[in-house]
Nucleic acid binder design. Structure first.
Length: 160
DNA sequence: GCCAACGTTGGC
DNA sequence: GCCAACGTTGGC
């Protein structure tokens, strides 16, 4: 029997890659690349599985918050940008036979009708304690609980 | 644009 | 293996 679905939150600065960029991608599917933090990498390598569900979070630019959902359609594999000298994610020290950085393929599931903002998240008990709300939390790949998953959909006013 | 918080690097 | 210096993240 397959493992139960897991829930995640992936962060991106919309100027680098936004939910509209994902929506405009072929098959509304794209490689989530450029993760260059070991803790986040370990999640992508060890825990994120095909079928897992993911919040898309816009950081750095207003309005900050959760803008929609995605589904993992291909589990972790070597992020090709680490071997591309022209990429800003190039890593000369990553051994080709033992790639250091991992990406996953994600497909757009749902763009929320409006951003679920940090203010909204902060004003509800279940979501106020989400990892993304913690001060100084920089992790770009974060686990989310089922109850957080459901509550955010409620705040967005949509079915999951 | 500021700057606190954080992760990584590298000299020792 | 410590830790100061540095670069980056990301809310505000």
């Amino acid at each position: 029997m397959a493992d139960p679905v897991r829930y995640w939150l992936f962060k991106s600065e919309p100027s680098a890659f936004s939910i509209d960029d994902l929506a405009a991608s072929p098959g509304q599917t794209a490689l989530w690349d450029g993760v260059r933090n070991y803790q986040a990498r370990n999640f992508l390598r060890d825990d994120v599985q095909t079928g897992d569900l993911v919040f898309f979070y816009h950081s750095r630019e207003e309005p900050l918050g959760i803008v929609g959902t995605m589904q993992v359609v291909r589990a972790g594999y070597a992020d090709p940008t680490q071997f591309n000298p022209d990429s800003k994610y190039y890593d000369a020290k990553s051994p080709p036979d033992a790639p250091r950085w991992i990406g996953v393929d994600v497909q757009l599931k749902q763009k929320f009708p409006a951003v679920v903002t940090r203010d909204q998240l902060a004003s509800h008990t279940k979501t106020a304690s989400m990892l993304v709300m913690k001060r100084g939390m920089r992790l770009s790949i974060q686990p989310v609980t089922r109850s957080e998953w459901l509550q955010v959909h409620q705040l967005a006013g949509v079915r999951q």
